Amino acid sequence: MGTNKLEIPVGFIWRYYPFRMPDQSQAAGQIVLSGTIHILLQFDVCEEIRLDRLRDLLSAPTLQQPALKHPAPGYVRYKRPPVVEPTEPLVLEGGERLEGEIKYYDYGVVSVLLHLTFSDSWETLIALASRWAWEIDFASHASDIVRRRLHLAASALVKPYTDWLSEDYLIVHIHHITGSLDAPDLIARYGSQIAQVVRGDTLALSSHERQEVLQSTISYYPTDLAVIGWNAAFLYDTPAGAEAAIQLLEYANSQLLEFRHYDDLLTKVLDTVYDSFEQRTGIFSGFRRAGSANRLHTVLLEVMELTEHADNAIKFLSDMFAARLYRLAAAKVGVPDYKDLVQQKIDTAEDLYRFMVDQFNQSRAFFLEFTVVVILIIELIYLFRGKGF
């Protein structure tokens, strides 16, 4: 983690809170939050990354297994742990200096995690979360970093993509709040502020919206709390305790990115197949669709293999809390929805493939029957002319 403190001038607060300036006389009694703010940027860069080859090219270590919330024998295990290396600092226009790291997953996703230590008030945190979530183009900065690194590791990439899909996610990790509150007290006293951080909104939310945000909470001990949203998460935990949660949020977002890619790929393939149905008609059209059927089947096999690869990249062995945290995070960012879309398109593609194969078989049977009839007609002609065999 970075060690630099965030210093926000009074003008910053005025710009994002023109309706209320902080009372300087109350500064001594102000609630102070300490922690780290993370911005997660992920890019789908290729079909597969050969991690062994990449490790040799970059001299980068493999990610260690995340720490657990409890001393149980179960743990979270990566099937192929990603390769990780520190990345160059990013300095924003406001002067904030973000340290970070970059991770390479074997299923073709590259993840950049930038972070900044924080110690200030709820008001400043809310303003900063909103600014980072909606106003700063982190993806542009991170993609430049990734392209420079991948230029050195091109030989480790399998079928690299020209255009990259991307995902971004904000993680606010607070490890200390004035008063050392437990999770229930934190929700009771500061639930409104937590909801604003998760939504990235500088204005207070309605009670209904606040309740909607705070429904997506999970805790293991009374002293820790995770509130998961679709584009941001709030973690209240020790640095060691938050490590596994951050990695699971990162993994859930990488899965979302992969399923988005498969959804786009299958949409294009199905559009091509539908176009072939419109363009090719006639008795022997089944023969002409044989090539399309073979290509469709090849893509189906690749998608199902890659989907299984991404879906099984991490295993939860007896750690039910980690599994529940992952399922909550995946549900909030939309992994099950995209997974269902991909599965529906796989089912549609399989139906189309069977239909095209049936058409090919019918065309082949018709051709064989037609050939037999032609041969019989020719033999009859020769027979009536007195030239039978």
Rank of each mutant, 00 (worst) to 15 (best):
L249T: 01
V227S: 00
I378Q: 09
Q30G: 03
H173Y: 01
F384D: 00
D106C: 03
I381M: 09
D237N: 11
V32F: 08
L165G: 08
L300M: 11
F384E: 05
L306N: 14
N253Y: 03
F370L: 13
I314Q: 03
R364C: 02
F360A: 09
V213M: 02
Y190C: 00
S363F: 07
L6M: 12
L306A: 14
G386R: 08
S34Q: 15
T307K: 12
I37P: 05
E305Q: 12
N361W: 07
T267E: 03
F384N: 06
D44A: 07
W14P: 00
D275N: 01
G282H: 07
L256N: 04
S155H: 09
H70E: 13
I187S: 04
F287G: 04
E308H: 13
S34P: 01
V172N: 03
K332F: 00
D163G: 02
L214G: 04
A133P: 02
H115Y: 13
S140Y: 10
Q65E: 13
W132V: 00
E209K: 12
L296C: 05
F118H: 10
K5C: 08
I375F: 11
T217R: 15
L90H: 05
E278R: 09
P73F: 08
D56K: 12
W132G: 01
S119Y: 07
Q211E: 14
I13L: 15
I171T: 05
N231I: 02
Y17Q: 07
E135Y: 11
D56Y: 11
G334R: 01
W230D: 13
L170A: 03
F367A: 14
P239T: 05
L57N: 07
E88T: 12
I37E: 06
E302I: 00
I177R: 04
L54D: 03
R189L: 14
A323N: 02
P73N: 02
E278L: 11
V84L: 08
K159H: 11
K315M: 06
H141Y: 15
V213H: 00
R53Q: 13
H70I: 05
G95V: 06
S25A: 14
L170E: 02
R53E: 14
V197I: 15
L51G: 04
P222N: 08
E250N: 11
Y382C: 07
P239S: 06
R97H: 11
N361K: 10
T178C: 02
V374F: 06
T162Q: 14
I346V: 15
L128I: 09
R327L: 10
Q30D: 14
N231M: 02
D237H: 08
A139L: 15
H176F: 08
L54T: 05
R80F: 12
P66D: 05
Q64D: 12
T117Y: 09
R80T: 15
Q65I: 00
R20V: 10
E135I: 04
L114C: 01
L376M: 12
R50K: 13
K315F: 06
H38W: 09
L203S: 08
L248K: 02
F234N: 06
F367G: 00
Y274V: 04
E308Y: 09
R131C: 07
P73W: 05
G229W: 07
L306Y: 09
R199K: 14
F287L: 07
A188Q: 10
A27C: 01
N312G: 10
A195N: 03
C46Y: 01
I49K: 03
S276Y: 04
F366M: 08
I177P: 05
K315V: 00
